[in-house]
């Protein structure tokens, strides 16, 4: 590694480097939008926990939240923004580099 080359960990994004927040963006990277209920069940978290993490992502401009009524029942839909999708892909790429490096370290130590 050259001196100017950054460690892959430096490319990680503080906002999305967290299981639930990365999970939300992972789901929304392939879907158009998902409900709060779907995200809660898919990620196995509580309402309050999910609400906090969605709030962090929304504040960072990575997702948008829309409330709508379907059959007189409120539904909260979460959608990834363009920035959210690109941040997700950059994070996955950085994680893959880091994991690749980790596996390389293990192989070298054998």
């Amino acid at each position: 590694m050259s001196e100017t080359e950054l460690h892959p960990a430096a490319e990680l994004d503080e906002t999305v480097h967290q299981r639930v927040r990365l999970g939300i963006l992972a789901i929304l990277s392939d879907a158009d939008r998902a409900t709060f209920t779907y995200l809660r069940e898919a990620l196995d978290v509580t309402d309050g926990n999910l609400s906090t993490h969605v709030g962090v992502l929304a504040k960072a401009g990575l997702v948008t939240v829309d409330k709508a009524f379907v059959d007189n029942r409120p539904r909260t839909w979460v959608r990834a923004t363009k920035k959210g999708r690109s941040t997700f892909h950059a994070e996955i790429s950085a994680l893959r580099k880091l994991v690749g490096r980790y596996q390389g370290d293990i192989a070298a130590s054998r």
């Binding site: 960990a9 990680l12 299981r19 990365l22 992972a26 996955i92 994680l95 880091l98 994991v99 980790y102």
Partner: peptide, 22 residues
């Protein structure tokens, strides 16, 4: 650093799993 890398693997696996199920 090893802890970072191990955590990265866990995060990556969880994210890819959620994506695959969706």
């Amino acid at each position: 650093m090893i802890q970072d890398q191990s955590q990265a693997k866990t995060l990556l696996t969880a994210a890819e799993g959620a994506r695959e199920r969706t």
